[in-house]
Computed example of a mutant assay.
Amino acid sequence: MAIITEKALPSLPPPAHTVGFKAWAKQNLFATPTNSVITVLMVLFILWALIPVVQWAFIDADWAGTKRTDCTSGGACWAFTLVRFNQFIYGFYPEAEQWRVNVAALILAVGLGLLMYKKTPAKAYIGLFMVIIYPVIAFILLRGGFFDLPVVETSKWGGLTLTLVLSIVGIVASLPLGILLALGRRSELPIIRSLCIAFIELWRGVPLITVLFMASVMLPLFLPEGTSFDKLLRALIGITLFEAAYLAEVVRSGLQAIPKGQYEAGKALGLSYWQSTGLVILPQALKLVIPGIVNTFISLFKDTSLVMIIGLFDLLNIVQIAAADPIWLGSQVEGFVFAAIVYWMFCFGMSRYSQYLERQLNTGHKR
């Protein structure tokens, strides 16, 4: 006997074997006998490698002490990183003035957070503030000399603070320069194209460590007598020009990937070269090369450790100096692990945000 009802029956849940972790594991880890054996072997290998690391880093670790001899358990001596934490973050920045670094970092974090949040209103004004006004505020806070703030010479900047200054300034300054170089390399004007090609190939043909050495040691020899540049400023100029050359090639690859029809469409609409480039071509090209751009930024962030060659004490260099202290001899491993974690956090964060941008801008690219 059939039962007819006008009410819709509630939807049944999907079968348990098709969703959830159990289904994922069955499909990806235990789909075949061979996959099952490989999965078990890999789990055993990971446990074999991970257990000693956990034992050293957490179970047998020492967290308190004022010198290396206080670490007697045989595990990691994290007391070293805790005692030297301020030095790792601020370098030799005066302790009484470290609040200025914190305020600059807080403004930066809030500004970037607002720009990354999808529903933030007036993003254009926030972006202009971060690009035009914030650098002035950060310079006043970090260096001082204004509003009764004591001057802190750049030679005292160090640690993570210096690493962030070098990487952020290098990223912000090199991207627009790299875009201009990429456009110049594709220009129909022979002189502009030749100059851009020469610049790009010259800077890409030498290692960054040579650029930093030249900027710090050789550049003053070509300047008029009595003229001097701040060592940090010289490093920033060298890093910016070096990274701009690499970014130019990344952007050029995106420009070449744009179908010719897009250029013709801009001309058909009566747009000028700069209007067509800024409104039609560049937005598409930059979207295509987001992975390459972020990869260059990550490389720049890690390459800032090379400034130790010119006597600037970035995060990695300050860790080495702290580990050379006689009372902390033997703590190099803990210091390098701390530095590696910091580098990984920033690089991983940039990588994940680039993937988020790719998903948000994934509107397709059809010829």
Rank of each mutant, 00 (worst) to 15 (best):
V110Y: 02
I327Y: 09
L41W: 05
I171Q: 07
V54P: 00
F21W: 13
E358V: 12
S36D: 06
K123R: 15
L219S: 05
W203R: 02
G159S: 07
L44R: 03
L106E: 00
Q262M: 07
W63Q: 07
Y90Q: 03
Q55V: 01
L141H: 09
L232W: 04
A25T: 02
M1L: 08
R185E: 15
L142M: 08
T227E: 04
L288G: 08
G159F: 06
R100H: 07
A122C: 06
V54K: 05
F30N: 02
I137C: 10
A182E: 05
C347N: 10
L208E: 05
L236C: 04
K302I: 11
V19M: 11
F21Y: 11
K26G: 14
I191C: 03
L329F: 08
R68C: 01
E201P: 02
W203P: 00
R193S: 14
L9W: 06
N317I: 03
A215I: 02
L189V: 10
P176Y: 05
G111Y: 03
V217P: 01
N35A: 11
L29V: 00
A173Q: 11
L106N: 00
A245V: 05
L189Q: 14
D230M: 07
S276M: 15
D314C: 01
L106W: 09
V250K: 05
A96K: 13
V294A: 09
